[in-house]
Computed example of a mutant assay.
Amino acid sequence: MTTAMVALHDLRMEYTAGRGRVTALDGVTVGLPAGTFTAVMGPSGSGKSTLLHCAAGLDRPSSGEVVLDGVRLSELDETGLTILRRERVGFVFQAFNLISSLTAAQNVALPARLAGRRVAPEEVAAALGRVGLADRSGHRPVELSGGEQQRVAIARALLTGPSVLFADEPTGALDATTSRQVLALLRGLVDERRQTIVMVTHDPVAAVADEILLLTDGRLVDRLTATSAESIAARMAAVEATC
Rank of each mutant, 00 (worst) to 15 (best):
L183V: 11
R136Q: 13
L158T: 02
V71Y: 07
C243V: 14
L133V: 10
V200Y: 04
V92H: 05
E143M: 08
S163H: 09
E230R: 14
V205C: 13
M236N: 07
F96Q: 00
A155P: 06
L213M: 09
A238Q: 11
E123A: 15
S62D: 08
G35Y: 08
M199K: 03
A176R: 07
L128D: 10
E192Y: 12
T3D: 14
P61N: 02
T225K: 10
V208A: 06
E65T: 12
V92D: 03
L81K: 02
H139L: 07
L215Y: 00
M5A: 09
L102N: 12
R12H: 15
D59H: 11
E87Q: 13
A233N: 02
V190W: 00
G18Y: 06
V28F: 05
Q150T: 03
F91S: 03
T242C: 08
G147H: 02
T196L: 08
V67N: 07
A229F: 05
Y15A: 06
E143G: 08
D69A: 15
E143F: 05
A105D: 03
A17R: 14
A55M: 05
L158C: 04
L183N: 06
G57P: 05
V67T: 13
M199F: 04
P141S: 12
Q94Y: 10
L32I: 13
D222Q: 08
